[in-house]
Design a protein around this nucleic acid. Structure first.
Length: 230
DNA sequence: ACCCAGGGTCATA
DNA sequence: TATGACCATGGG
């Protein structure tokens, strides 16, 4: 009962939903801000916060880095965890200011760049990879809660697997292509939002024929524990 | 009145 | 290293 290969899932999702054109942002910096603000938060709330930043003319690296913490928090309040995220935004903005100005941030190897991003307080694996993929054009596969949920449903792996294991799973099964990774992650999110909520019922899901848990059969099926083969 | 959302950090054992 | 608490708003 081998699972349908990731690239097939991609083709199917692309056929159903079409190109998503992610990430929705007017600039790389806006994209990065969005990546931080959307941590465990609905995108709708993030849109409100970003619109508010724009309304206050604060969607700027230097301005955020030097802004008053409380005031910044108020502006992004709608995104939730707003004081924590205000700190994260300042830390990141300082990092970006120090490194984007002809320091050659765009010339660093992806792995080095990733480590630098991870060293910023408030930036974990998913946020770092999102920034790499959508703001810095690095071919990196982003793993998020939707990715886990969808491919767990499709029986590719167990939900318990950590970030790096899951990323490696896709890395060894997909060609290293920037547009592929950009579209795939976007498609996974758009699809999972609609059809892979917490309930195990996927009526009318376009992937239903490939999804063992579709149509609410409720049947628990034995899943592979480790994706690593080679 | 719940449940959840495009995570990450920190304290504890 | 592995689990749990915490952060907090807005929509369903």
């Amino acid at each position: 009962m081998s699972s349908i290969p990731p690239v097939q899932v991609y083709k199917k999702l692309l056929a159903v939903y079409g190109p998503q054109g992610w990430w929705p942002a007017d600039s790389p910096f806006e994209m990065m801000v969005g990546a931080i603000l959307t941590q465990n938060t609905s995108w709708q709330n993030v849109e409100t916060a970003i619109a508010n930043l724009k309304a206050h003319n604060m969607l700027d690296c230097e301005l955020i880095a030097s802004s008053n913490l409380q005031q910044l928090g108020e502006v992004i309040r709608a995104s939730g965890f707003y004081m924590q995220k205000a700190r994260y935004l300042q830390q990141f903005s300082l990092f970006y200011y120090n490194n984007s100005k002809r320091k050659g941030l765009s010339k660093w190897p992806t792995s080095i760049l990733r480590n630098r991003l991870l060293a910023v307080h408030g930036i974990g694996p998913e946020t770092a990879d999102s920034i790499l993929l959508y703001a810095l054009d690095r071919p990196v596969f982003v793993v998020d809660a939707y990715t886990k949920r969808l491919f767990m449903r499709l029986e590719h792996f167990d939900y318990e697997l950590g970030y790096d294991s899951i990323q490696h799973y896709f890395k060894q099964r997909l060609p290293e292509s920037l547009p592929l990774f950009q579209e795939f992650h976007a498609l996974i999110v758009e699809h999972a939002k609609r059809f892979c909520k917490t309930k195990p019922l996927c009526s009318r899901c376009p992937l239903a024929s490939d999804c063992p848990t579709a149509m609410g059969s409720g049947a628990e099926i034995n899943r592979p524990k480790h994706p690593d083969v080679d």
